[in-house]
């Protein structure tokens, strides 16, 4: 098999892991094993997987509350992620963060944030720290297109351009901010045009092919790393599920969703892999492997201990 085949297969495996992981999480949610919020990434996997595949282990990743895909693509274990969603002490934040706030300091997964757009300056800060130290890391920041309307986003873009921060900002345009279509939240259809006001490099493309995502984000990451320049990128994508589990998605038709599923990033990757020579056995093996990993994560979360009450005050001062 070729290098291209192996590289794509690795990305494919990550995308399938995210999808199966979230399907299992959704099931656990409907069984009442998970409470609170659960914002699924299903349909958007190529974006996180392609983007994060361009990073080194020291680069920074900052995202939104829709963070399961980012975390898994960053190499966080399915066990620690599932346990965190379950609110178990074995979770990545010992159950203190939950679904919206995944962190892994070691992997520089700097968190999922629940304040829409409020995290963009934080990502600029990660990039600033790298530039200040001269340590060469890049920060990748994800947000939804709905967050483009908030001031923090614009201030952070202005600052990133002014101070030439190694920041790649990825607007995942999934067309709906909760249930509100883009046409009702922005005066332009292409959020990457916001970069023009800040004299910042920009890009815009569809996230249907994970290799395209990897190549285009990769160019921006290189610009950040080599020239210390920021880029604003709009990735056009689509989520198949509601904004969160409590959203029945009545603001769009079932036909619309079904039509979009026909151009699915995982199915597209599978087609490309078959064209590169992958046979049924390859996909059967991936399915088996991922199913085992997800089953293991669910079992681990099910069987893990609840956090003790001593944790309530363990991580703050008196």
């Amino acid at each position: 098999m070729t290098n291209q085949h192996d590289a794509l297969l690795d990305l494919y495996r990550q995308m399938v892991l995210i999808r199966r992981f979230e399907e299992a999480a959704a099931k656990a949610y409907s069984q009442g094993k998970i409470g609170g919020f659960l914002h699924l990434y299903i349909g958007q996997e190529a974006s996180a997987v392609g983007a994060l595949s361009t990073l080194t282990r020291d680069d920074y990743v900052v995202g939104t509350y829709r963070d399961h895909g980012l975390a898994l693509a960053r190499g966080m274990s399915a066990r620690s992620c599932m346990a965190e969603i379950y609110g178990k002490v074995t979770g990545c934040s010992q159950g203190l963060g939950g679904s919206m706030h995944f962190f892994d300091a070691e992997r520089r997964m700097m968190g999922g944030y629940g304040i829409v757009g409020g995290h963009v300056p934080l990502a600029a800060g990660c990039a600033f720290a790298a530039k200040y130290r001269g340590s060469g890391e890049v920060a990748l920041c994800f947000l939804g297109e709905g967050a483009v309307s908030i001031g923090d986003f614009h201030e952070a873009m202005s600052l990133a351009a002014l101070w030439k921060l190694p920041l790649v900002t990825i607007v995942e345009n999934n067309e709906y901010s909760m249930g509100t279509p883009l046409s009702r939240t922005m005066s332009v259809a292409d959020s990457s045009t916001k970069a023009l006001a800040y004299n910042m490099a920009r890009d815009r493309f569809e996230a249907k092919d994970v290799l395209v995502v990897r190549e285009r984000i990769g160019a921006a990451v290189e610009r950040a790393r080599r020239e210390s320049l920021p880029t604003l990128i709009e990735v056009q994508t689509y989520r198949y599920r509601g904004h969160s589990m409590s959203d029945p998605g009545k603001y769009r038709t079932a036909d619309e969703v079904e039509a979009r599923k026909k151009d699915d990033c995982i199915a597209n990757a599978e087609r490309s892999l078959r064209a590169l020579g992958a046979g049924d056995d390859v996909f059967a093996r991936v399915d088996q492997e991922i199913e085992a990993a997800v089953d293991d994560a669910v079992r681990f979360a099910d069987e893990s201990a609840e956090p003790g009450e001593e944790l309530i005050e363990a991580y703050t001062y008196a």
């Binding site: 920074y60 900052v62 700097m110 409020g118 995290h119 963009v120 300056p121 934080l122 990502a123 600029a124 800060g125 990660c126 990039a127 600033f128 720290a129 790298a130 200040y132 130290r133 920060a139 001031g151 923090d152 201030e155 952070a156 202005s158 600052l159 002014l162």
Partner: peptide
């Protein structure tokens, strides 16, 4: 800095979490 207190503060927080 620019008159941009929210993002300057956010940037400081992000930098702090990154070791500054």
């Amino acid at each position: 800095t620019p008159i941009s207190e929210p993002s300057i503060t956010g940037m400081a927080i992000g930098a702090a979490a990154s070791g500054m």
